[in-house]
């Protein structure tokens, strides 16, 4: 019973889970995009699209930047551009830099632990069979 419940009940189960996972990573990704220097909103969106598979709904990033700024992790300044209108550039504060480092460390240790756990799941099927063979042989010898 428990096993069948653990399997996705419908086709969009894993997709929804993945969407939640991506959403949760947006804040860290937004901070990370500013590690090298200041960027404005659209640049952050384009940077995240090209460097990661974070396909953002563009409306979500601006309120997040606004919140990170209110929390003192980012600063912003308006810079006149050739486009004819000024752009709002964001940069990491010292607090933001520190927070991002801590997030990156937590994320890396968490994901490497999970990768080890998932390694057998992702191994190609035939390799998995051959890995199982010695166990069978041992059993036969024991018999």
């Amino acid at each position: 019973m428990a096993k069948s419940r653990a399997l996705p009940a419908d086709g969009d189960g894993p997709d929804r889970w993945e969407a939640q996972l991506r959403k949760g990573a947006v804040e860290m990704a937004a901070l990370a995009s500013l590690w090298q220097g200041r960027l404005y909103g659209l640049e952050i969106i384009r940077f995240l699209e090209s460097r990661s598979q974070l396909d953002l709904a563009e409306g979500t990033i601006y309120p997040i930047l606004n919140r990170l700024k209110a929390e003192g992790q980012l600063t912003s300044e308006w810079v006149e551009a050739e486009a004819g209108h000024p752009r709002k550039y964001y940069a990491l504060t010292d607090a933001g830099r520190l927070r991002l480092r801590l997030m990156a460390e937590a994320w890396t240790s968490f994901s490497s632990g999970l990768s080890r756990l998932l390694e057998p799941v992702l191994r190609p099927a035939d390799e998995d069979l051959s890995a199982g063979t010695p166990v069978l042989e041992e059993k036969e010898i024991a018999r």
């Binding site: 659209l42 563009e58 308006w78 486009a83 000024p86």
Partner: peptide
């Protein structure tokens, strides 16, 4: 007004 200005710049740039 700051939000409006930023979103307006985003729309025009995009």
């Amino acid at each position: 007004e700051e939000i409006i200005r930023e979103i307006s710049a985003h729309i025009r740039d995009s």
